[in-house]
C-alpha cells in the first residue's frame, strides 16, 4: 500500500496527484471527527466520570471541622508525603444496622415500586399500543402529561389526599367507616403509593414503544391456530415484549433506590431510605466523607443493573440501525 502510494508520487502523473489529495483529505478527516467527538466526550468525562474519583477519594478520608469538612488524603508536612487511607467510614456502614437497614429498605421499596408499576403500567401501555393509530398519540400524551408537570407537584398532590384531614380520611369519616382519621401520611404505604405514582411514566413509555412494534398479525395468527386470548398473551405478547419489560423495570428500579424527595416528604421518620441517609449525612451532619462512602456503596449496588440496562439498550439500537 505504502510503496504503491510512493510510486504514484510523480507530479506529472495525474493519478499520483489524486492519490496525494486523497491522502491529505483522509488525514484531515479523522482530525475533524476527533475534535467533534472530544467536545461532548470531554464534558462528560470532566463533569460525570471524574467526580466519582473524588467521591471515592473523599470516602476514604476523615471528617474534620474545616472548609471543606474533610481531611485531605495526601498531605505534605515537612517534606514528608503522608497518605492516610481511612477505612473507618466503610466499617461503620457495614457495622451499623442503621445503614444496612436503610440499604435493604431502599432495595425493597424500589423492588415493590417496580413490581406495582409493571402491573399497572403493562395493561395501560398495551391498551394504548393496540388503540387505533389516530387515537394512540393522544392517549400517550394524556399518560405522559403528568410526567411533564413538576415532580414536586406530583408528590405534593398526594400530601393533600393522604393528610389526616385529607380527602381519603374525610371520605372514610363521612361514610362512617372509621371513627378517627387513619394515619396515612408518613407511613411505608404513603411512600409506596407516591413512588408508584411518580415513577409510572418511566415504566409505561418503554413498554409502549416496545408493544407498539408488535405485529398485530402475530396475535391473529395465534388466534387462528386456536390459541385463547389469555394464552396468546402469555405465549406470544409477553415473551416478545421482554425488552420493554426489562427496560421499564430498570428505569424505575435504579433511580428509585436512591430516591430522596418522596421519603423525605411523605415517609416515616424512623425507617430511612438510603437517599435520605446520604442527604442527612451531607446537609445535616456535614459529614462529607460518610456521605461519600454511602454513595460509593450505593454505586456498587447499582453499577451492575446500570451496565446491564445500557448493554441491552445498545443492542436494541444496533438492531434498529441494521434495519
Amino acid at each position: 500500500m505504502m510503496s504503491r502510494l510512493l510510486s504514484l508520487r510523480d507530479s506529472r502523473d495525474p493519478a499520483g496527484r489524486a492519490a496525494r489529495r486523497a491522502a491529505w483529505w483522509q488525514r484531515l478527516a479523522p482530525r475533524g471527527r476527533t475534535l467533534v467527538t472530544a467536545i461532548p466526550y470531554g464534558w462528560l468525562l470532566l463533569f460525570f466520570l471524574v467526580p466519582f474519583l473524588f467521591v471515592l477519594q473523599i470516602s476514604f478520608s476523615e471528617v474534620e471541622i474545616a472548609s471543606p469538612p474533610y481531611r485531605a488524603l495526601v498531605e505534605r508536612s515537612e517534606d514528608v508525603l503522608n497518605i492516610a487511607l481511612n477505612l473507618g467510614n466503610y466499617t461503620y456502614i457495614f457495622g451499623d444496622p442503621l445503614y444496612f437497614d436503610a440499604y435493604l429498605g431502599s432495595l425493597e421499596t424500589a423492588a415493590v415500586t417496580t413490581a406495582i408499576c409493571l402491573l399497572i403500567g403493562y395493561p395501560i401501555a398495551y391498551t394504548i399500543a393496540r388503540a387505533p393509530e389516530a387515537r394512540r398519540n393522544t392517549l400517550l400524551m394524556l399518560v405522559m402529561l403528568p410526567f411533564w408537570t413538576s415532580f414536586l407537584v406530583r408528590v405534593y398532590a398526594w400530601m393533600g389526599i393522604l393528610d389526616s384531614n385529607g380527602l381519603v380520611n374525610q371520605a372514610l369519616l363521612a361514610l362512617g367507616l372509621v371513627d378517627a382519621p387513619l394515619q396515612l401520611m408518613h407511613t411505608q404505604l404513603s411512600v409506596q403509593i407516591v413512588m408508584v405514582y411518580a415513577y409510572l411514566p418511566f415504566m409505561i413509555l418503554p413498554l409502549f414503544s416496545n408493544l407498539v412494534k408488535l405485529d398485530g398479525r402475530l396475535l391473529e395468527a395465534a388466534a387462528d391456530l386456536g390459541c385463547r386470548p389469555w394464552k396468546t398473551f402469555l405465549t406470544v405478547t409477553l415473551p416478545l415484549s421482554k425488552n420493554g419489560v426489562v427496560a421499564g423495570s430498570m428505569l424505575v428500579f435504579i433511580p428509585a433506590v436512591g430516591e430522596f424527595v418522596i421519603p423525605e416528604l411523605v415517609g416515616t421518620p424512623e425507617s430511612l431510605m438510603i437517599g435520605k441517609v446520604l442527604w442527612m449525612e451531607f446537609f445535616d451532619n456535614n459529614n462529607w466523607p460518610m456521605a461519600a462512602s454511602v454513595t460509593i456503596v450505593m454505586l456498587a449496588l447499582l453499577i451492575l443493573p446500570i451496565v446491564y440496562l445500557h448493554k441491552r439498550e445498545e443492542k436494541a439500537l444496533a438492531r434498529a440501525a441494521r434495519r
Binding site: V50, V55, I58, P255, F282, A292, L302, H310
Partner: peptide, 17 residues
C-alpha cells in the same frame, strides 16, 4: 448513566468536583 443514576449520587459527586 446520568438518566438512571439516582440524583443524590450525581449531585454529590459533582459538588465534590
Amino acid at each position: 448513566a446520568p438518566m438512571v443514576m439516582p440524583e443524590v449520587i450525581t449531585g454529590l459527586s459533582m459538588l465534590l468536583l
